[in-house]
Amino acid sequence: MKNNTRRGFMGKAFGAVAAVGAIGSLVAMKKTWDPLPSVKAAGFTTLDMSVYQENKLAVEKWRGKPIFVLKKTAAMVADQTEIQSVRDIVVDGAHYMVSIGLCTHLGCIPSYNANDKDFLCACHGGKFDYAGEVTKVPPPRGLDIPPFKIEGNTLVLGEKGPEYMKMKETGVTL
């Protein structure tokens, strides 16, 4: 008796054709899961940098995430080491710390202490200085800097300007 599971050549060929169709429909299914155009279009936030006060943390929102904006005083700028100062975003002559306000450890939002000029993440005790660099583990790296572009005295988050690209190339941020 012949093996009844043997489909023969045409059975295999038909199976292959059907598989092509199934894969084609998977492409449509994958694309249906993509973020909507309106979501992508809303991925840009423009910040007017002239409104911030020195050494007072402002929290903005970009792509649903908190964004820390900290305008540095002249003393803060002067005290910075080289590693800290490369993280500065300079708009219209003023120095800012702009970063995604989520701890690089597990994503909690650190709080800012204006007296000590540092951030403390309450979840696991990680600490960052006012430039966003790690001063106490567990966070593996400084606060991430979002893509930005300087336009006059505004900062467009979501667009990649030359200053951001430089930070990315030199490994200042991920």
Partner: peptide, 9 residues
Amino acid sequence: FAFLWKRQV
């Protein structure tokens, strides 16, 4: 292809 398969079977 389905038809050719059927014909063979």
